[in-house]
Amino acid sequence: MSTKKDSNSSSDKVYHDPLEEKTPTDTSTEENSQSRLADFKEHSKKYLWNIGKALLPFASLFLLLEIAMLIVHAVNPDISDNLFPIPHELVAYAWRAFFPGKDSFEPSVALHIGRSFARVAIGFAIGVVSGILIGILMGISKWFYRLLNPLFSLMISIPTLAWVPILLTIFGLNPTTIVITVFLGCFFPIVYSTTNGIRSIDKKLIWAARIMGANKFEIFFDVLLPGSLVSIIAGLRLAIGYSWRAIVGAEMLVALTDVKGIGYYIIGGKVANQTAQILVGIFLIALCGLLLDAVLMKPLEYFTLRRWGMVEKTEG
């Protein structure tokens, strides 16, 4: 084993193509597979340990609140359960919110989340396409930059939700308003990061490509686009967070009509004085925000940037 490790560590110093590393040639030997199994076990143990460590504060908070609430309810029985729910009741409430019985009038939370995700998907897709196009135009053309940059830098200082009143007067109380709010929330960061990514590319690279006889399309696809990809994807990652934040607020402000959605669900909790509903909604918002980042953005970053060799392989 020790010799194996030594040989590994010595070979680390030699440069390896990252694509080549993924297809090791000697997978057939038993020793190697065993060591890889041990590696996998160690990794998964570490991973599980990290997850456990991350869950510990939530568990302790849960216990603390449980005890505190039990004491409060024991001392003062007048306090309503609706206003200050006990944590274990919250869990039961979350279960009922996801799987309401047949006799319940209210739809499942899953429906609300699905509606919100659909709106985010539409708004974000429009924002990505138009934002990257306009960002590239602003990055390439000097006059586009001079024309649009002042306007965008003024507009970026308006909170996204402040657009909602204007949109309400134009489109009325309906889901279109929400989708366009999401679009406005993610449009500006995407434009900004794309433009910055293209403008911060070293001019010498472009000159070098030009000297070697590249035409404009080649320069764009082989120099500008790969060079600005890190910035663009960082912008996308920011933007999806922004659009997820925007949708909650937008749905809360449009909640006078029966648009579904997670913001609508939360505001419903306020109207009904159901704290449990609000808390479940808040937890779901946080979970979905983390999920969007982990499922959509991290793999995107991994596959594009790692494949194109823009980011070094990180340790651990």
């Binding site: 206003l83 200050f84 939700l161 967070g241 997820w244 934040r245 925007a246 909650v248 607020g249 809360m252 913001g263 939360i266 505001i267 909790g269 306020k270 004085n273 704290t275 609000i278 808390l279 909604g281 808040i282 918002i285 946080a286 925000g289 983390l290 980042d293």
Partner: peptide, 15 residues
Amino acid sequence: IPIPGIAWAPLIFVW
């Protein structure tokens, strides 16, 4: 961190 600040509003309103 990913929770928008306005999502806390109903909770604080109620409490």
